[in-house]
Structure formats: structure tokens, C-alpha cells
Design a binder for these strands. Structure first.
Lengths: 191, 191
DNA sequence: GTCTATACTTGGATAGAC
DNA sequence: GTCTATCCAAGTATAGAC
């Protein structure tokens, strides 16, 4: 992995762990093993580096979700697969996290990937939910768009609650609760 | 309002807007109108000030929730009242926000009010949901604790999505989606 | 491309006068 | 209780040598 790549990856980790304000160029240099000059050779400064890192995280999230939502099984099965995917609950979401960073949200360039990621995700999930309704797997009543937004919110909020409790099980409980409402006959998670 | 109180309130606002790392003693002094000496007279430093502010925010959240969850109406009505309460969606939750702050979560004293607040809220809501089930307002099937956690997660995640979209309506959509699953016959929000 | 030196600002706090 | 002066580390960069 070349230096540029290492810088991006280190920045991704630090943004995830500590957010934008909490991430200093120094810390990035230490974690990546790059020197001062090297970092400023590859990137113009912290915002430039952050843009590369955020873009990368956003692409990542989208690629995984797309793989599961367009994967095998019935529409409802794919939704469940997506929701139940193993996640590092205590680390939280590398993209959702950024919404709490005022400096990120204040910069249109940094903000854009965050906005687009969730806008896409909500829409994509709503589409699969609509398919599930069309196929009779789900009741026809609830609005797919609202349901999709609620489900994505459960994921994001599940991270918050798991971190508050310092317990990844709380995240799993949030997902269980949501699935219990979405699929009344759903088998409970094995414990 | 005396100076001590102004310092606490200013710190609360700043923690809410910018988080712990993003909040400097200088900024607190400017917002509160206190001088250097005044601030360090009333508080021993940033962590001490943050503790006072966080405790205050936690008490606030709890008091409001308790008022609604123990207020008038049937159990299910009280849950709906709580979920539909007017909230400043783009500002987010002053307590939930702190879970993203590594320095807060790393300090047991600062972390405690956050942990206790959500632990209490999930339990309290679960209790009211159980009442609603006992009274026949809700289906008996879903586990009240899991459902409660999912609903609180929708709130917290709704803030995340609303901020990502820079649109408070997204928050409302998340709540609508959750209520649509919880109460299949619920009347849609008036628009 | 990477290193070292340098620079200026801000963060976070202490000391002592009033 | 509040003010001013002072302090040292860290944040964020630029300049120029290698």
C-alpha cells in the first residue's frame, strides 16, 4: 500500500473514532507513518484528506448495502439480511457519525457524500420494501418510504444506544424490536 | 441568572452544537460573557464544567419524557404523544450526541449520566408498552423491551438522517414509519 | 516524495492583583 | 468573584533542503 493510500485509511479510522474536530494532522501522520512533508505532498490539508476519506467510506457503505439488497432471496429476505448483517455496534457507522460533526456539515464538499449516501440508502431500501409488498410478503398498508427511513434510523439509533450502554447487545435488541414490528411472524434471533 | 448558571447553560449549548472536543473554554467564556478568572473560579476546568452541563441535559430529557409517559390518556396514547412531541430535529439530541464523543465516553463521570438516561428511558418506555399490551391496545406478541429500544433508536437515528439530509421532515418520516409499524391502524400525521 | 525547521494560532490552564 | 498577565502544549500549516 503506498503512502497516499495509508494516509487515506488512517484518516478514515480517525474520523470514525474521533470525528473531524478530534482528528489532527499530527495524529494522521503518526498513525499512517507519514512525515509532515509527505502528508502535505499528497494532500493540501486536513479538509482535502477528509474529503478523500469520507468519499471512500461512503462508497464502501453503499457497495455493501447494494450487494445485500440486490442479492439472493425474496425481497423481504434481503431486507432482513441487510438489517441483520454483523456490524461492529460499538464503533458505530463511519458515515452516520459525520452528521454530528459541525465542521463537516458546514462544508458543502464534505457534506455531500454523507447526504447522498443516506438519500440513496433510504430510497433503495424503500424500493425493496415496495417489492416485498407487491409480492405479498408484507402488508400493503405502511408507506415504503417512511418504513425504509424508520429502519435506517433504527440502525443509526441502535449504534447510539449501544454506545450509551457500552453494550453491543443493545444494538441487536433494537434490530430485533424493529423486525418484530416489521415481520410479526419473524423467528427471534438465536441467542 | 448568575454567572455560574450562565456558564452551565453556555456549555450545554456548545456541547450540543459542537461536542466535547469541539468546545473550548474560550468559546464558553465568550458565549457566557464570563472572563477567564470567573470561569475557573466556578469550575475547576473543562471536564468539571462539562459534567455540570451534561447532568443538567440528562435531567431535562428525563423530566420531559416522564411527564409525557406518565401523563393523561391510555398507555398507547402516551407512547404516541412521546414519539410525536415537537423536537428540533436538526439540532439533534443533546444527550445522544455525546455518545459520539470519545473523550466523554472515556471518562466514567461524564459517561454515567448518558448511560443512565438511555437505560432509564428504554425501561420506562418498555413498561408503558407492556401496559398497552396488557390493556389490549397492542398485539401481545412483540417483546416490549426490544420494541422500546427500537423506538428510542428511531428517535436517535431520525436525528442522524434529518441532519444528513438537512431536512427536519426526514425525522418526521422516520417517526411516521415507526408508528405505521407499531399501530397499523394509526391515522397518518396531518400534513 | 520525504525530511527538518520554522511559524503562528488556539486550547487549556495557573498566578496574582483588584 | 472577576480581571489581566503569563505559560506551555497542540493544531495546522509553509519553506526549503535532500
Amino acid at each position: 500500500m503506498d503512502m497516499r493510500e495509508r494516509l487515506i485509511e488512517s484518516t478514515r479510522e480517525l474520523l470514525w473514532e474521533r470525528g473531524y474536530v478530534g482528528t489532527s494532522p499530527r495524529a494522521i501522520q503518526e498513525r499512517s507513518g507519514a512525515g509532515q512533508g509527505s502528508m502535505y505532498h499528497h494532500f493540501r490539508g486536513k479538509p482535502d484528506l477528509a474529503l478523500a476519506a469520507i468519499t471512500r467510506s461512503a462508497e464502501d457503505l453503499r457497495a455493501r448495502a447494494e450487494a445485500e439488497l440486490s442479492g439472493g432471496g425474496t425481497p423481504l429476505e434481503r431486507v432482513v439480511t441487510y438489517l441483520r448483517r454483523e456490524r461492529d455496534a460499538l464503533r458505530g457507522c463511519p458515515v452516520g457519525r459525520l452528521t454530528q460533526d459541525p465542521d463537516v456539515m458546514a462544508d458543502p464538499a464534505l457534506r455531500r457524500p454523507v447526504e447522498e449516501t443516506f438519500s440513496w440508502l433510504r430510497g433503495r431500501l424503500a424500493g425493496v420494501l415496495a417489492q416485498a409488498q407487491a409480492g405479498g410478503e408484507l402488508a400493503a398498508a405502511p408507506d415504503p418510504a417512511a418504513t425504509a427511513t424508520a429502519l435506517v434510523a433504527v440502525l443509526q439509533g441502535g449504534y447510539v444506544l449501544a454506545r450509551a450502554a457500552a453494550d453491543a447487545e443493545v444494538y441487536a435488541q433494537a434490530i430485533d424490536g424493529a423486525l418484530g414490528l416489521l415481520v410479526p411472524a419473524a423467528p427471534p434471533r438465536s441467542r
